[in-house]
């Protein structure tokens, strides 16, 4: 993990207002926010994330992003395997750099979706489309079920494609595709 990715991640989170506003709503919701004053993260020997919060140790926790597409590194919910929330990390700046890096890494573990850099071929046959694309984890071929819901815009420009196995692929900005690539997918949009 380079610092560059962290910067990219934090850059995104700056778009949200960083100043916490105590409102009646906030009071009622009673969210536990984690920051460097009350929580510390570390990696266990087994490669799992562990957190200490208010003197309590949680050995294996998972990092869920509240906005995996629009604002990945903000409002991270730290949860146990039983799906109990320990607390929410509002933004990565609330922790030191090493911890921020660790959290971004955990996000990468949980949300695996190769980015499509170049579409090579999209062929439709019998209700399924067969895709071939260059992604940031190599050239992949996958099959997408026809009909609604498999290919969708999760932000105005970000396209999420789910294949028949449940693997996910991302086109970060479909407007940046070349004309040729765009023509391959325009029917699905």
């Amino acid at each position: 993990m380079t610092t560059k990715t962290i910067e990219a991640a934090t850059e995104q989170s700056e778009q949200v207002s960083t100043e916490p506003v105590i409102t009646e709503l906030a009071e009622a919701a009673a969210i536990t926010f984690l920051d460097r004053s009350n929580a510390s993260f570390r990696l266990t020997e087994g490669g799992m994330l562990a957190v200490e919060h208010d003197g309590k140790q949680h050995e294996a926790v998972y990092v869920h992003s509240s906005f995996p597409h629009s604002n990945r590194a903000s409002y991270l919910s730290i949860r146990t395997i039983e799906n109990k929330e320990i607390g929410i990390v509002r933004q990565l700046e609330d922790f030191d750099e090493a911890t921020a890096e660790l959290l971004v890494q955990q996000l990468q573990v949980r949300y695996f979706a190769p980015q499509i850099n170049k579409l090579l071929k999209v062929k439709e046959e019998f209700g399924y489309s067969y895709w071939e694309a260059e992604t940031d984890s190599g050239i992949v071929k996958f099959t997408v079920r026809g009909g609604v819901g498999q290919i969708k815009l999760v932000t105005p420009v970000r396209l999420l494609i789910t294949d028949v196995d449940g693997n996910r692929f991302i086109i970060p900005d479909y407007t940046a595709l070349s004309d040729k690539e765009y023509r391959m997918i325009e029917l699905y949009m």
């Binding site: 266990t44 490669g47 294996a60 949300y111």
Partner: peptide, 29 residues
């Protein structure tokens, strides 16, 4: 087997702590 988003991991308890043994894409879930 713990299904994550777009991938799965195989984990186990080893010497009192949890350990990730392997990670794979969904087709092997």
């Amino acid at each position: 087997m713990v299904p994550l988003i777009g991938n799965v991991i195989l984990e186990c308890e080893l010497f009192g702590g949890k350990t990730i043994l392997a990670r794979s894409t969904m087709e092997h879930a």
